[in-house]
Amino acid sequence: MIKKIQSLFLSFALIITSFVGLGQVATIAVADDFPSKPIEVVTHAGLGGGTDTTARMLLIRTRKNLKNNAYITPKKGDGGNKAMSYVKSKPRDGHTVLAITPTHLFRMARGGAALNIDDFVGVARTTVDPIVIFVNAKSPYKTIEDLIKAGNKKPIKYGGTNVGSVDHISGLIFAREAKTKIAFVPFEGGGAIMTNLVGAQIDAAGLNLDEGKDQLESGELRVLAVMADERLSALPDTPTLKEKGINASFATVRGVVVLKGTPADRIAKLEKGFLKAMAHPVYQNYLTGAGLDASSVAGSAAWDAEIKKIYKEARAALVSLGLAK
Protein backbone atom coordinates (compact mmCIF):
# COMPACT_ATOMS: atom_id res chain seq x y z
CA MET A 1 0.00 0.00 0.00
CA ILE A 2 2.72 2.42 1.00
CA LYS A 3 4.53 1.61 -2.18
CA LYS A 4 1.43 2.34 -4.20
CA ILE A 5 0.98 5.70 -2.56
CA GLN A 6 4.63 6.39 -3.10
CA SER A 7 4.41 5.62 -6.79
CA LEU A 8 1.22 7.62 -7.17
CA PHE A 9 2.96 10.51 -5.56
CA LEU A 10 5.93 10.16 -7.88
CA SER A 11 3.80 10.15 -10.99
CA PHE A 12 1.98 13.25 -9.79
CA ALA A 13 5.29 14.87 -9.07
CA LEU A 14 6.33 14.10 -12.64
CA ILE A 15 3.25 15.76 -14.04
CA ILE A 16 3.57 18.82 -11.89
CA THR A 17 7.25 19.33 -12.58
CA SER A 18 6.60 19.20 -16.29
CA PHE A 19 4.67 22.43 -15.99
CA VAL A 20 7.53 24.29 -14.38
CA GLY A 21 8.48 27.46 -16.18
CA LEU A 22 5.77 27.34 -18.79
CA GLY A 23 3.14 29.66 -17.44
CA GLN A 24 3.58 33.31 -18.16
CA VAL A 25 3.68 35.22 -14.94
CA ALA A 26 0.31 36.84 -14.47
CA THR A 27 0.00 40.06 -12.53
CA ILE A 28 -2.86 42.00 -11.18
CA ALA A 29 -3.83 44.74 -13.59
CA VAL A 30 -3.52 48.26 -12.33
CA ALA A 31 -6.79 50.17 -12.47
CA ASP A 32 -5.38 52.78 -14.89
CA ASP A 33 -6.99 52.67 -18.35
CA PHE A 34 -3.76 51.80 -20.23
CA PRO A 35 -2.02 49.44 -19.93
CA SER A 36 -4.85 47.54 -18.30
CA LYS A 37 -3.05 44.19 -18.70
CA PRO A 38 0.56 43.03 -19.21
CA ILE A 39 2.28 44.18 -22.39
CA GLU A 40 3.21 41.35 -24.74
CA VAL A 41 6.36 41.83 -26.79
CA VAL A 42 6.51 39.45 -29.76
CA THR A 43 9.95 38.49 -31.06
CA HIS A 44 10.96 36.38 -34.04
CA ALA A 45 14.18 35.00 -32.58
CA GLY A 46 15.30 32.32 -30.17
CA LEU A 47 16.03 32.89 -26.51
CA GLY A 48 19.37 34.48 -25.80
CA GLY A 49 19.92 35.99 -29.25
CA GLY A 50 20.48 39.71 -29.83
CA THR A 51 16.80 40.50 -30.39
CA ASP A 52 15.68 38.52 -27.37
CA THR A 53 18.32 39.98 -25.06
CA THR A 54 17.65 43.54 -26.22
CA ALA A 55 13.92 43.09 -25.61
CA ARG A 56 14.52 41.66 -22.15
CA MET A 57 16.85 44.50 -21.19
CA LEU A 58 14.30 46.99 -22.47
CA LEU A 59 11.51 45.47 -20.41
CA ILE A 60 13.33 45.55 -17.06
CA ARG A 61 12.60 49.25 -16.54
CA THR A 62 9.58 49.46 -18.84
CA ARG A 63 7.61 47.40 -16.34
CA LYS A 64 8.16 50.06 -13.73
CA ASN A 65 7.48 52.96 -16.07
CA LEU A 66 4.21 51.54 -17.38
CA LYS A 67 3.19 50.20 -13.96
CA ASN A 68 2.35 46.83 -15.42
CA ASN A 69 4.04 43.59 -16.25
CA ALA A 70 5.53 42.89 -19.66
CA TYR A 71 6.57 39.59 -21.20
CA ILE A 72 8.13 38.19 -24.33
CA THR A 73 6.45 35.76 -26.70
CA PRO A 74 8.92 34.23 -29.15
CA LYS A 75 7.33 33.27 -32.48
CA LYS A 76 10.09 31.87 -34.62
CA GLY A 77 9.63 31.12 -38.28
CA ASP A 78 9.86 32.28 -41.88
CA GLY A 79 11.99 35.39 -41.36
CA GLY A 80 9.70 37.03 -38.84
CA ASN A 81 6.53 36.25 -40.76
CA LYS A 82 5.31 33.93 -38.03
CA ALA A 83 5.67 36.75 -35.51
CA MET A 84 3.87 39.13 -37.86
CA SER A 85 0.90 36.84 -38.45
CA TYR A 86 0.65 36.32 -34.69
CA VAL A 87 0.59 40.08 -34.07
CA LYS A 88 -2.01 40.46 -36.83
CA SER A 89 -4.39 38.24 -34.86
CA LYS A 90 -4.20 40.53 -31.81
CA PRO A 91 -6.43 43.55 -31.05
CA ARG A 92 -4.96 46.95 -31.92
CA ASP A 93 -5.07 48.23 -28.36
CA GLY A 94 -1.39 48.76 -27.63
CA HIS A 95 -1.00 45.68 -25.46
CA THR A 96 0.81 43.78 -28.19
CA VAL A 97 4.13 45.11 -29.41
CA LEU A 98 6.32 43.63 -32.16
CA ALA A 99 10.11 43.74 -31.87
CA ILE A 100 11.05 44.54 -35.44
CA THR A 101 14.39 44.12 -37.27
CA PRO A 102 15.57 44.33 -40.90
CA THR A 103 14.68 40.62 -41.11
CA HIS A 104 10.98 41.56 -40.93
CA LEU A 105 11.40 44.45 -43.34
CA PHE A 106 13.21 42.30 -45.91
CA ARG A 107 10.65 39.55 -45.45
CA MET A 108 7.83 42.02 -46.22
CA ALA A 109 9.78 43.39 -49.15
CA ARG A 110 10.05 39.90 -50.66
CA GLY A 111 6.24 39.79 -50.79
CA GLY A 112 3.61 37.44 -49.43
CA ALA A 113 4.05 38.37 -45.77
CA ALA A 114 1.15 38.44 -43.31
CA LEU A 115 1.43 42.20 -42.86
CA ASN A 116 2.47 45.14 -44.95
CA ILE A 117 4.83 47.97 -44.00
CA ASP A 118 1.84 50.35 -43.85
CA ASP A 119 0.27 48.20 -41.14
CA PHE A 120 2.88 49.34 -38.61
CA VAL A 121 3.56 52.43 -36.55
CA GLY A 122 7.06 52.77 -35.11
CA VAL A 123 7.19 53.30 -31.35
CA ALA A 124 10.89 53.43 -30.50
CA ARG A 125 14.27 52.37 -31.82
CA THR A 126 16.35 50.27 -29.44
CA THR A 127 19.67 49.62 -31.20
CA VAL A 128 21.54 50.70 -34.34
CA ASP A 129 24.49 48.62 -35.38
CA PRO A 130 25.96 49.54 -38.77
CA ILE A 131 27.54 46.86 -40.92
CA VAL A 132 31.32 47.14 -41.10
CA ILE A 133 33.42 45.53 -43.84
CA PHE A 134 36.18 43.44 -42.25
CA VAL A 135 39.11 41.62 -43.87
CA ASN A 136 41.88 39.46 -42.48
CA ALA A 137 44.82 41.56 -41.27
CA LYS A 138 47.24 39.36 -43.24
CA SER A 139 45.37 39.91 -46.48
CA PRO A 140 46.75 42.31 -49.11
CA TYR A 141 43.64 44.50 -48.89
CA LYS A 142 44.66 47.67 -47.07
CA THR A 143 41.85 49.90 -48.30
CA ILE A 144 38.36 49.39 -49.63
CA GLU A 145 39.69 50.26 -53.10
CA ASP A 146 42.11 47.30 -52.91
CA LEU A 147 39.22 44.98 -52.18
CA ILE A 148 37.09 46.43 -54.98
CA LYS A 149 39.95 46.06 -57.45
CA ALA A 150 40.62 42.46 -56.38
CA GLY A 151 36.95 41.64 -56.81
CA ASN A 152 37.09 42.68 -60.41
CA LYS A 153 39.71 40.03 -61.13
CA LYS A 154 38.11 37.27 -59.07
CA PRO A 155 34.88 37.53 -57.06
CA ILE A 156 35.47 38.42 -53.40
CA LYS A 157 34.44 35.59 -51.09
CA TYR A 158 32.14 37.60 -48.88
CA GLY A 159 30.72 36.07 -45.71
CA GLY A 160 27.34 36.88 -44.17
CA THR A 161 24.30 35.28 -42.60
CA ASN A 162 21.55 33.57 -44.56
CA VAL A 163 20.45 34.32 -48.10
CA GLY A 164 17.97 37.20 -48.32
CA SER A 165 19.17 38.73 -45.04
CA VAL A 166 20.41 42.27 -44.61
CA ASP A 167 23.98 40.91 -44.74
CA HIS A 168 23.38 39.32 -48.10
CA ILE A 169 21.55 42.24 -49.66
CA SER A 170 24.04 44.79 -48.33
CA GLY A 171 26.90 42.74 -49.80
CA LEU A 172 25.18 42.58 -53.18
CA ILE A 173 24.34 46.29 -53.20
CA PHE A 174 27.91 47.13 -52.19
CA ALA A 175 29.19 45.05 -55.11
CA ARG A 176 26.78 46.66 -57.54
CA GLU A 177 27.46 50.22 -56.43
CA ALA A 178 31.23 49.71 -56.26
CA LYS A 179 31.20 47.90 -59.61
CA THR A 180 32.91 44.80 -58.31
CA LYS A 181 31.93 41.17 -57.83
CA ILE A 182 31.30 39.05 -54.76
CA ALA A 183 30.65 35.35 -54.17
CA PHE A 184 28.42 35.32 -51.12
CA VAL A 185 29.23 32.61 -48.55
CA PRO A 186 26.38 32.23 -46.04
CA PHE A 187 27.14 31.11 -42.48
CA GLU A 188 25.02 30.24 -39.49
CA GLY A 189 25.82 33.37 -37.50
CA GLY A 190 28.20 36.21 -36.72
CA GLY A 191 30.57 34.03 -34.69
CA ALA A 192 31.03 31.60 -37.55
CA ILE A 193 31.65 34.41 -40.04
CA MET A 194 34.32 35.95 -37.82
CA THR A 195 36.05 32.60 -37.23
CA ASN A 196 36.17 31.89 -40.94
CA LEU A 197 37.53 35.34 -41.66
CA VAL A 198 40.35 34.96 -39.12
CA GLY A 199 41.01 31.48 -40.48
CA ALA A 200 41.24 33.02 -44.00
CA GLN A 201 38.52 30.80 -45.42
CA ILE A 202 36.85 33.91 -46.84
CA ASP A 203 38.21 37.26 -48.09
CA ALA A 204 35.87 39.73 -46.49
CA ALA A 205 32.69 39.93 -44.45
CA GLY A 206 30.05 42.36 -43.34
CA LEU A 207 29.84 42.16 -39.54
CA ASN A 208 28.54 44.32 -36.74
CA LEU A 209 31.49 46.02 -35.07
CA ASP A 210 31.02 44.11 -31.84
CA GLU A 211 31.25 40.76 -33.61
CA GLY A 212 34.82 41.41 -34.71
CA LYS A 213 35.97 43.91 -32.12
CA ASP A 214 38.29 41.64 -30.12
CA GLN A 215 39.98 40.29 -33.22
CA LEU A 216 40.32 43.82 -34.57
CA GLU A 217 42.08 44.94 -31.42
CA SER A 218 44.32 41.89 -31.26
CA GLY A 219 45.43 42.59 -34.83
CA GLU A 220 43.90 39.60 -36.57
CA LEU A 221 41.30 41.55 -38.51
CA ARG A 222 41.24 44.91 -40.27
CA VAL A 223 38.30 47.19 -41.02
CA LEU A 224 38.03 48.76 -44.46
CA ALA A 225 34.78 50.71 -44.43
CA VAL A 226 31.53 51.31 -42.58
CA MET A 227 28.18 50.98 -44.35
CA ALA A 228 26.77 54.14 -42.81
CA ASP A 229 26.20 57.79 -43.66
CA GLU A 230 28.50 58.99 -40.90
CA ARG A 231 31.67 57.59 -39.37
CA LEU A 232 31.36 55.56 -36.19
CA SER A 233 32.59 57.17 -32.99
CA ALA A 234 34.38 53.91 -32.18
CA LEU A 235 36.14 53.86 -35.59
CA PRO A 236 36.98 57.50 -36.29
CA ASP A 237 39.61 56.65 -38.93
CA THR A 238 37.52 54.23 -40.92
CA PRO A 239 35.83 55.80 -43.94
CA THR A 240 32.17 55.27 -44.77
CA LEU A 241 31.18 53.84 -48.12
CA LYS A 242 29.26 57.05 -48.74
CA GLU A 243 32.49 59.07 -48.53
CA LYS A 244 33.91 56.79 -51.18
CA GLY A 245 30.96 57.55 -53.43
CA ILE A 246 29.42 54.13 -52.90
CA ASN A 247 25.76 54.38 -52.03
CA ALA A 248 25.31 51.45 -49.64
CA SER A 249 24.30 52.25 -46.06
CA PHE A 250 23.03 49.30 -44.07
CA ALA A 251 22.70 48.59 -40.38
CA THR A 252 21.24 46.01 -38.06
CA VAL A 253 18.56 48.17 -36.49
CA ARG A 254 16.13 47.01 -33.88
CA GLY A 255 13.05 48.65 -32.47
CA VAL A 256 9.47 48.19 -31.42
CA VAL A 257 6.29 48.80 -33.43
CA VAL A 258 2.54 48.44 -32.92
CA LEU A 259 -0.20 47.89 -35.48
CA LYS A 260 -1.75 50.88 -37.21
CA GLY A 261 -5.06 51.76 -35.63
CA THR A 262 -3.69 51.70 -32.11
CA PRO A 263 -4.93 54.89 -30.35
CA ALA A 264 -2.34 57.67 -30.56
CA ASP A 265 -2.39 58.40 -26.82
CA ARG A 266 -1.49 54.79 -26.11
CA ILE A 267 1.39 54.87 -28.59
CA ALA A 268 2.62 58.02 -26.85
CA LYS A 269 2.38 56.32 -23.47
CA LEU A 270 4.29 53.29 -24.70
CA GLU A 271 6.93 55.49 -26.32
CA LYS A 272 7.43 57.41 -23.11
CA GLY A 273 7.73 54.20 -21.09
CA PHE A 274 10.25 52.68 -23.48
CA LEU A 275 12.36 55.82 -23.86
CA LYS A 276 12.57 56.29 -20.12
CA ALA A 277 13.60 52.65 -19.72
CA MET A 278 16.33 53.05 -22.30
CA ALA A 279 17.69 56.18 -20.64
CA HIS A 280 18.21 54.21 -17.43
CA PRO A 281 21.75 52.98 -16.64
CA VAL A 282 20.55 49.35 -16.83
CA TYR A 283 19.91 49.70 -20.54
CA GLN A 284 22.76 52.11 -21.20
CA ASN A 285 25.27 49.68 -19.65
CA TYR A 286 23.91 46.96 -21.87
CA LEU A 287 24.44 49.15 -24.94
CA THR A 288 28.02 49.88 -23.89
CA GLY A 289 28.66 46.17 -23.35
CA ALA A 290 27.41 45.49 -26.87
CA GLY A 291 29.73 48.14 -28.30
CA LEU A 292 26.96 50.64 -29.01
CA ASP A 293 26.07 54.05 -27.57
CA ALA A 294 23.13 56.23 -26.62
CA SER A 295 22.57 57.28 -30.25
CA SER A 296 20.93 53.87 -30.70
CA VAL A 297 17.76 55.12 -29.06
CA ALA A 298 15.18 57.11 -31.04
CA GLY A 299 11.55 58.03 -30.58
CA SER A 300 8.39 57.19 -32.47
CA ALA A 301 8.50 59.76 -35.26
CA ALA A 302 12.11 59.13 -36.25
CA TRP A 303 11.81 55.36 -35.98
CA ASP A 304 8.57 55.23 -37.95
CA ALA A 305 10.17 57.20 -40.78
CA GLU A 306 13.26 55.00 -40.65
CA ILE A 307 11.52 51.63 -40.99
CA LYS A 308 9.57 52.97 -43.96
CA LYS A 309 12.76 54.20 -45.57
CA ILE A 310 14.56 50.88 -44.98
CA TYR A 311 11.58 49.01 -46.38
CA LYS A 312 11.54 51.16 -49.52
CA GLU A 313 15.27 50.65 -50.07
CA ALA A 314 15.03 46.93 -49.36
CA ARG A 315 12.17 46.61 -51.80
CA ALA A 316 14.06 48.50 -54.51
CA ALA A 317 17.19 46.45 -53.85
CA LEU A 318 15.39 43.11 -53.96
CA VAL A 319 13.54 44.00 -57.16
CA SER A 320 16.72 45.22 -58.85
CA LEU A 321 18.53 42.03 -57.84
CA GLY A 322 15.67 39.90 -59.12
CA LEU A 323 14.92 38.50 -55.65
CA ALA A 324 11.39 39.96 -55.49
CA LYS A 325 8.74 40.76 -58.05
Binding site: G48, G49, M57, D214, G289, A290
Partner: peptide
Protein backbone atom coordinates in the same frame (compact mmCIF):
# COMPACT_ATOMS: atom_id res chain seq x y z
CA UNK B 1 27.72 29.51 -24.22
CA UNK B 2 26.27 31.97 -26.74
CA UNK B 3 23.75 32.97 -24.11
CA UNK B 4 26.50 33.17 -21.47
CA UNK B 5 28.32 35.60 -23.79
CA UNK B 6 25.10 37.63 -23.79
CA UNK B 7 25.47 37.66 -20.00
CA UNK B 8 28.97 39.13 -20.38
CA UNK B 9 27.48 41.94 -22.45
CA UNK B 10 24.79 42.74 -19.93
CA UNK B 11 27.45 43.20 -17.28
CA UNK B 12 29.57 45.31 -19.58
CA UNK B 13 32.23 42.56 -19.68
CA UNK B 14 34.04 41.24 -22.70
CA UNK B 15 35.30 37.77 -23.39
CA UNK B 16 38.35 37.36 -25.53
CA UNK B 17 42.12 37.46 -25.21
CA UNK B 18 41.78 40.40 -22.81
Amino acid sequence: TAVILGGFQIHGLRAGPY
